[in-house]
Nucleic acid binder design. Structure first.
Lengths: 344, 344
DNA sequence: CTGAAAGCGCTAACAT
DNA sequence: ATGTTAGCGCTTTCAG
């Protein structure tokens, strides 16, 4: 951002006007071929680069997309980011990332900074704390300002914008059915607290599957992992609860709403010398690295993060380029798929 | 970026000049308390936000930092990013991310876009392909343009800039020594190809430890994982090689230069019913999620990604704010630490 | 105390 | 074919 040569300097050096330079560099036929070439040569020699900031000011767009995610050290979100980044770059957009760290305050702050700043639109997944508070004014305000927003994965109903989600409920139902078909009927669900939209939907799917098979749900068989600051704490909470259940009840399967829960559960089972999948089968959401490298490897429900990212980016860019109307709001639903590994 | 109210509009509404508005909003004492308050009230009522693009143009700085990493779906890099993001935000900087995906071309492209664009400085870790090609012109050019660059983890010598690295060689040596002290002398090293700086240093450390203990290195006991497009391929290469070695040689320990290698090795050992750590102990670089959730969990060498990120950001911001001279170049070395788990 | 004007780098409509 | 000018939104110096 320092000494790069400007149009003005080129103009001065060559004793022409700034606009002549500008036009020449755009190869405008308004300018005589001779001067044009001379100017282009000079510019190239001096490694001229247009100042994008000035362009942004003029065009009222920055060609960059803001992404707000709850966590980045997280397999699913990093996959999505990667995919957003890829698709956006291909379409001439930069990506700027902000992490809310599951905090409402930070999310609002991020939103403000991005909205006042160098972005044309926002793609986001909502922080847990925000979901809990049910306070979405920042998102609404951003949209009111005319900045398009696309929500993915953790979305909410009462904000009007494009959304990309996964068929959470259905996928959970199907996974549960797979376990039931495998003659397992005491299925433990490890889920998040109710306000987390996706956790909630997955819980519903689980319950529906039980109902369809005339299995009475047992509230002891549902562990809702309490949010703590720091995943370490959450995990020890989960481990304690699980130990308790194991003593209390006979269970033959576990459905986890994400792979950290399932991975931690697996550790507990091993500690208790319980055979997986013989005694207890496991299926989990999030097809990440834990699932693949644990042993036995975990059967998972892939949420297809790459597709999510790409769809979200596509929706946003379509809005940005005016391909879709600002008042229409699409909801794209991506179908999960079950990846069978050793744990089921 | 659409209808937000501008100074000009406020000025018109209130029949004052733009500069009066500007000054009032900055609470300048030049302006009478009365008009000042009136203007501030009006601005607040209309939710006035300064246009950061205009500010950037004026100040010739954007208050954003560009980060280029080889991969984002990667525990270590995501930790670093997270930390950079955190520290930068605290200091009033935004972070914009670009992923080279280990490709030289993409890295150069990213660099160009960032350098012409909305950033004041760059933090980066170099792509494998770039290391292989030994072509660093893009980095040098960026620096010549007056844009400060900080390199981390995968760095190179012949570029003059700040760097943050880890004592790779020493850490590898110490880890090897730990294995040797545990009466293991047939230690298999799983490393990357030579041009990857960190892999190379770690290999050196391994060799030195052997030498110090009068163990003759055996080239059969060094697997250099070939780069392939797609980590799946790399892993099957690694698995094949490892199977071969297991048949050929008696080994009692493995040192992996990252946790993916170690995790994959662990899978192979299990498949072959080899007891870890009894028959073969494992230590690996990268203290990530694989190490923690595999079983047995892996002893790892933590590279302290949070510290790296913070240091890198601090170095850059110090340059940006003029706290340090543009011509001095610091190299910060972070000490790894060995985290003992079940595999050793 | 308030305002006019220049300028950051660029584009584009409008002269010449 | 080339140049002048206004303007994107803001800050800041200098006049009034």
């Amino acid at each position: 951002m320092i000494r790069r040569i400007t149009l003005k300097e080129i103009a001065n050096e060559l004793n022409v006007s700034i606009s002549t330079v500008s036009k020449s560099l755009k190869d405008s036929h308004e300018i005589g071929i001779e001067t044009r070439e001379k100017i282009k040569a000079f510019a190239k020699a001096h490694n001229y680069r247009p100042n994008n900031i000035a362009l942004s000011l003029k065009n009222r767009k920055t060609k960059t997309i803001g992404v707000i995610i709850p966590e980045i050290v997280h397999h699913f979100f990093s996959i999505v980011i990667n995919s957003i980044e890829k698709f956006s770059t291909e379409n001439g957009y930069n990506v700027i990332i902000a992490v809310s760290n599951e905090s409402f305050e930070k999310e609002v702050l991020n939103m403000e900074t991005l909205a006042n700043g160098h972005i044309d639109g926002i793609i986001m997944s909502i922080a847990k704390e925000t979901l809990k508070k049910q306070d979405f004014h920042h998102i609404k305000e951003t949209i009111d300002l005319g900045i398009p927003v696309v929500l993915f994965d953790r979305v909410i109903n009462d904000v009007k914008c494009d959304k990309v989600i996964v068929n959470d409920k259905q996928a959970a139902k199907e996974a549960t059915q797979v376990l039931i078909d495998d003659k397992r009927s005491n299925i433990l669900l490890i889920t998040s607290e109710d306000y987390v939209s996706v956790g909630n939907l997955r819980t519903e799917g689980y319950l529906e599957a039980l109902k369809d098979n005339d299995i009475t749900p047992d509230s002891d068989l549902i562990i809702k992992v309490k949010d703590k600051k720091g995943s370490q704490l959450e995990m020890s909470f989960l481990e304690n609860e699980l130990e308790k259940v194991l003593k209390l009840k006979k269970i033959d399967a576990i459905l986890g709403v994400n792979e950290i829960y399932a991975g931690s559960a697996l550790k507990v089972l091993k500690k208790n010398k319980i055979k997986v999948p013989n005694e207890i089968a496991i299926i989990s959401f999030t097809d990440g690295v834990i699932s693949r490298y644990s042993s036995p490897s975990l059967s998972t429900i892939s949420q297809h993060g790459e597709i999510m990212g790409e769809r979200a980016a596509k929706l946003l860019i379509n809005k940005l380029t005016g391909k879709t109307n600002n008042n229409e709001h699409k909801i794209e639903i991506i179908n999960c798929s079950l990846i069978k590994r050793e744990s089921s």
